[in-house]
């Protein structure tokens, strides 16, 4: 197993809060890694550091052997890092198909003139991207909404479109920030199935943050646990479930 993502002694502080404190773990290629922890444990901060929205104070994030330090988010996206968001971030005025294709278009990095005039090469690219986008919508079981503006969809469908948009980039690493938030138990079970199928079909490596233990325990190969910005445990689901430190962190939260 080769390491795809390596988090190495990462710390991040804002204001008086130490969001991440010397966190280190690795994600192996083709695996689904869970990242759990009570609210405010630093999960989203870590995501933002990996995709480049936040700059780490110290430590290194290596992706496919390369230090990501100083790379802008759009450059990281082009390296194959895609993410979904805790809050819905579909482009509301763009159709579902356009939502899937715009990031692909942006990643293709054609000249502005080719984009503006839709020169034949650009059009060809767009058709291929369009075909792929259609195929993805089919794969996700939402082919019928292709022409509807993102803002007009039900939450459950929007989540799937978001997943499709991330997949349209054919990511090597997919960061999933609470994909089950707002879903009922049936939808969550469906989501678990979709995530497993994605890995089977595309071999995508995933880092999954969620509060829903049923989802995390079901789909993840192994799990890292954060508490107050610190990594307190790491290992396969069955061991994490029994880990006294983890149990205490969660009980401590519910007792508070």
């Amino acid at each position: 197993m080769t390491v795809l993502l390596q988090i190495d002694g990462v710390s991040k502080r804002y204001g008086g809060v130490q969001a991440l404190n010397d966190v280190s773990f690795r994600v192996e290629r083709g695996r689904i890694k869970g990242l759990i922890g009570p609210n405010g444990a630093g999960k989203t901060s870590l995501f933002n550091c990996v995709c480049g929205v936040l700059r780490v104070d110290s430590g290194h994030i290596r992706y496919a052997g390369r230090d990501l330090h100083g790379l802008a988010p759009h450059r990281r996206a082009r390296l194959g890092i895609a993410r979904t968001f805790q809050t819905l971030e579909l482009f509301r005025e763009l159709t579902v198909l356009e939502n899937l294709m715009v990031p692909v278009d942006a990643a293709a990095r054609r000249g502005m003139l080719a984009d503006a005039l839709r020169l034949p090469r650009a059009r060809f690219e767009e058709n291929r991207a369009g075909e792929r986008a259609h195929a993805l919508l089919h794969f996700l079981g939402i082919a019928e909404v292709a022409g509807i503006p993102g803002g007009d969809l039900a939450i459950g469908i929007q989540r799937r479109v978001e997943l499709g948009r991330a997949l349209a980039l054919r990511p090597t690493l997919l960061l999933l920030d609470e994909p089950a938030a707002g879903l009922d138990s049936r939808e969550t079970a469906e989501l678990a199935g979709v995530l497993s199928r994605i890995r089977e079909r595309f071999g995508t490596t995933m880092l999954l943050v969620d509060h829903d233990m049923s989802l995390v325990m079901r789909v993840c190969d192994d799990i890292a646990v954060l508490d107050y910005g610190r990594l307190i445990a790491e290992g396969p689901p069955e061991r994490i479930r029994e880990d006294p430190t983890v149990v205490r962190a969660y009980l401590g939260e519910s007792a508070a």
């Binding site: 995709c51 929205v53 802008a72 988010p73 759009h74 996206a77 082009r78 993410r83 968001f85 971030e89 482009f91 715009v102 990031p103 942006a106 990643a107 948009r165 980039l169």
Partner: peptide, 9 residues
């Protein structure tokens, strides 16, 4: 969001 989706804003 556009920036995060790889668009060179």
């Amino acid at each position: 969001a556009a920036r995060l989706w790889g668009i060179d804003v």
